[in-house]
Design a protein around this nucleic acid. Sequence first.
DNA 1: CTGTTAGCGCATTCAA
DNA 2: TTGAATGCGCTAACAG
Lengths: 334, 334
Amino acid sequence: MATIYEVSRLAGVSLATVSRVMNNSGRVRPETREKVEAAMRELGYRPNSIAQSLASNRSNSVGVLVPELHGPFFGTMLSNIEAELRAAGKHVIITAGHSDEEKEKDSIEFLASRQCDALILHVYAVSNQYLLGLAEGPLPIVLIGRDIPEMGGRCICLDNEYGGYLAAKAVIELGHRDLAYLAGPLWKSDAKERLAGFQRALGEYGLRFEHKLLVEGNYQEPSGRQGMKRLLQVGLPFSALVCGNDEMAAGAIAVARERGMTIPDELSVVGFDNVFFTRYMHPALSTVNYPNDVMGQMAARCVLRDVYGLVGLDIRNRFEPSMVRRASTMEFRT
Amino acid sequence: MATIYEVSRLAGVSLATVSRVMNNSGRVRPETREKVEAAMRELGYRPNSIAQSLASNRSNSVGVLVPELHGPFFGTMLSNIEAELRAAGKHVIITAGHSDEEKEKDSIEFLASRQCDALILHVYAVSNQYLLGLAEGPLPIVLIGRDIPEMGGRCICLDNEYGGYLAAKAVIELGHRDLAYLAGPLWKSDAKERLAGFQRALGEYGLRFEHKLLVEGNYQEPSGRQGMKRLLQVGLPFSALVCGNDEMAAGAIAVARERGMTIPDELSVVGFDNVFFTRYMHPALSTVNYPNDVMGQMAARCVLRDVYGLVGLDIRNRFEPSMVRRASTMEFRT
DNA sequence: CTGTTAGCGCATTCAA
DNA sequence: TTGAATGCGCTAACAG
């Protein structure tokens, strides 16, 4: 690997000059620049970014922490974050926090020790207090999917409560009056908010919230299956099921089908997130759209602007969910 | 941020000693070690990994290049790579190559300039020659999903040909004699191999391969829809459809259903990869299992062993696909 | 067992 | 516009 020193010798200039042409910093006479560039080409020179980082105290890499790397939800988010950052020449270091406080903190430490210039976090387990403390430190952070007002514009989030509201409203307006709810893990703020929105809709339409028809899952498909079984055991009738996310909806539908129910004729089902596979399901799942792709992009732009000083970036912080009507819901019929 | 120098002063020892306790290198008297550790704790010291990398010429990070970050297939692969490497204290830098030669090379340059200790690559577009050239360079690489014999044990791959064979065999043994094939992009080696296996099975069972019932897609769901439409236009009957991957199978099934066909009664469908959503489909998709999770793990172990010198790791290079029979296939009936 | 010393490859003053 | 000098924080001989 050629170093800057060899380039400078071949070009007959000093280290500093080579550094200047690399970074377009300071004035360099065009002819000198040419000489240097020729030397770089001849040697196949590639700057050592580690050394650059050490000298400039800037690593050009941003750490990203999401709950999981697999699964339909975070993949698209990561994809957009990477694309946006990569286009700006920044590296992405990715870790998974597994919704566990210990692991989330561990990941953050991990990324921080790697001298990331900024962190993009989608975390569940760590407290707001912890995050605020972190935000006061020297390492800039941007949050996705979590709203902490004190953090100013450093949160990219969705109105989950309204999403839950929309989901309930969608089936209520189809005439359903007995709704069950298959919640995500209620210690997670988004799951709790979605449920709250659901309950608000019931209230607005004068429907009673039936506690027995609320079951808590963990956002995974198997818990959707389990939850559906529990709901059926309750013995109370319900003609519509609203789910905390799409994966649980998929599980619930599978169980309903095993029990001989047809969807949507005997049961309308609504998911949440609008992950890609909802279109492949049969019937295609009605769900609440979560624009996690552009939200990922916005988080990336946030660090591009705040940390790397890029200007003229279009950035939005708050997003509204929207209802996507497909085939898993239909009018209530007795 | 406290530096090693401040720690050494507080502990009343030299830089070198602090370095030794950090890296467990060289003998250090227990009491000295204690003093140093106490000082580190008191200062909340975290080593600057950039500086470590520069000094040791080792970045403790491995670059990973996959075609896409989203989608069901690579997510689980990445997840396992990250987990395995992370457990060993290594960082993962992820980029996407988008099956484009330019972008793949670009990504590799990108990762190399970041001083990765090794690269794990799942690439389609770059040539074997290019990869062999790369492998001769100073940067160790491990390939997933691609077999280049000259690379020795540095390939983790699946017998795609056999997978295609199994898929065809599965429906043939159910009595189907008219099979259609919805291929992946045939310039990709895995797509080509899967098709070859399919054809071999036909031959072994004395069936003729009908060119008109071969359609090429691009591994994405919309191309599955398109492909299915094209197949139906051909006018030749077929009672079974074998697909190059699960996403295309999902698209094909959607179209079949729009045309009023019932699956599997009127058409048996087989996918490939066994991605997670095949279980959520209705009917659940019969498919060929691709153990990309453990394959990712094995690739990670490969670099752990070859680059970081870990020993005692269980590593397998070649994997066999297996048929997963679910509900989308059934016996042929006239 | 511990301290001294010399870089790793580059950015960045300050002079010239 | 350019060059010389200094240091980023740490590892790795080498010496003691």
